[in-house]
Design a protein around this nucleic acid. Structure first.
Length: 136
DNA sequence: GCCAACGTTGGC
DNA sequence: GCCAACGTTGGC
């Protein structure tokens, strides 16, 4: 199983909204690197839900429930979406600031290439952030 | 609101 | 195929 990170501006689509919706398709990705990651997502993979611009924190965890298919919002066949459902809200959101302070997470794409809207997360990074969310 | 970083576009 | 110009993203 692989781990990912999905970015969304909370005033456009927040984790709370996803909790209400129970499920959504992840559209609007118009970057090839991000698209390629989406194509590699497998059913059952998990992803952090990160709030960019406002919040700047990982709010919760989602699960990929449908693998990449044509983005229904465009006829351009370059672009795909995946379906996700919320798994759980983090006990405590983990902020970008904390992530930047953590040496183990210095290689995260979130730190190195903050503009990429779909990112890959290693198992080590995943565990570390989960642990951080459990702590004070 | 500013601006650095990055991706894309288009002229050559 | 290079690279300057431009647009967008996102942290600050």
């Amino acid at each position: 199983m692989n781990y990912w990170l999905l970015k969304s501006e909370p005033f456009v689509y927040s984790f709370d909204q996803l909790l209400k919706d129970k499920k959504t398709f992840w559209d609007g990705v118009r970057n090839y690197a991000a698209r390629n990651y989406m194509r590699n997502m497998k059913k059952g993979d998990q992803a952090f839900f990160y709030h960019s611009n406002k919040g700047l924190e990982i709010a919760g965890i989602v699960e990929i429930v449908r693998e990449a298919y044509q983005d229904p919002t465009t006829s351009d066949t370059n672009w795909v979406v995946v379906d996700v459902r919320p798994l759980k809200r983090l006990k405590r959101p983990v902020s970008l600031k904390e992530i930047k302070q953590e040496k183990l997470l210095a290689d995260m794409e979130l730190v190195v290439n903050s503009r990429l809207s779909v990112q890959k997360v290693t198992a080590e990074q995943w565990e570390k952030i989960l642990k951080m969310s459990e702590e004070e």
